[in-house]
Structures are given as structure tokens and as C-alpha cells.
């Protein structure tokens, strides 16, 4: 898993590449929560480079999403591959996040 960080206006864009699986979920969650705590604008997680996600990866996004919602900040997802989108749809996560 690889994460690139870029400031776009008031948002931080995180470009994630690789697998959001159980072994990678904790480091992914830690990276997300670091950005949540170190910035005060919106966050966009670009998943174009992610070809696999399990419920552990969903969990990491949910933890960050709850923290952002509590702080009244935006956490959006973008560029989901079809199989990744299917995982989000089945688990009901598509309705929880803004997906671009």
C-alpha cells in the first residue's frame, strides 16, 4: 500500500494505491487519522489505485469518517474501481460517504 498526499485548495487529497486488506488496515487508518488531526479542511480519498478492499479497509474509512463528521468536516471518496464500488454498495457504505 502506498499513499501520496497533496493539498488542493482547502482539501487534502490522499491518493491511495495497493490493497486495503486486513494487514494494511491499521497503517491505513493511522495515516488517515494523522491527516484528520493535523489538518482542518476537507479530505478526499482517491481510490483509483486500490484494486482490493475488505471489511478491514472499510472499517478504517468509517473510523475516519466518524471523526470528520464529528468535527463537521468533509470526507469524500473518489475514483472507485467497479469491484471496489460493489463492496461499498453491498455493505451500505456507498450511502454513508460522498463518492465522486
Amino acid at each position: 500500500m502506498h499513499i501520496e498526499r497533496e493539498q488542493v485548495g482547502s482539501d487534502v487529497v490522499l491518493k491511495v494505491a495497493g490493497r486495503l486488506d486486513t494487514p494494511n488496515a491499521k497503517p491505513f487508518e493511522a495515516s488517515l487519522m494523522e491527516v484528520v488531526s493535523m489538518t482542518d479542511g476537507g479530505i478526499v480519498v482517491n481510490l483509483a489505485g486500490v484494486d482490493y478492499v475488505s471489511s478491514s479497509g472499510l472499517r478504517a474509512l468509517l473510523v475516519a469518517g466518524k471523526a470528520m463528521r464529528g468535527a463537521k468536516r468533509k470526507l469524500a471518496l473518489s475514483s472507485l474501481q467497479p469491484q471496489i464500488r460493489e463492496v461499498f454498495d453491498i455493505s451500505g457504505f456507498s450511502t454513508l460517504f460522498e463518492i465522486n
Binding site: 475488505s54 471489511s55 472499510l58 472499517r59 468509517l62 473510523v63 469518517g65 466518524k66 463528521r69 463492496v87 453491498i90 455493505s91 451500505g92 457504505f93 450511502t95 454513508l96 460517504f97
Partner: peptide, 17 residues
């Protein structure tokens, strides 16, 4: 399926998938 992110439960989605 939760209505909002505040109501979403963490975990339990593996078997569903």
C-alpha cells in the same frame, strides 16, 4: 444498513460480503 455515518456500526460486514 445505517441511515448515517453517526449510526454506522464498526464491524460485522465481513460475513455480509
Amino acid at each position: 444498513v445505517p441511515d448515517s455515518i453517526e449510526d454506522a456500526r464498526i464491524g460485522g460486514h465481513g460475513v455480509q460480503l
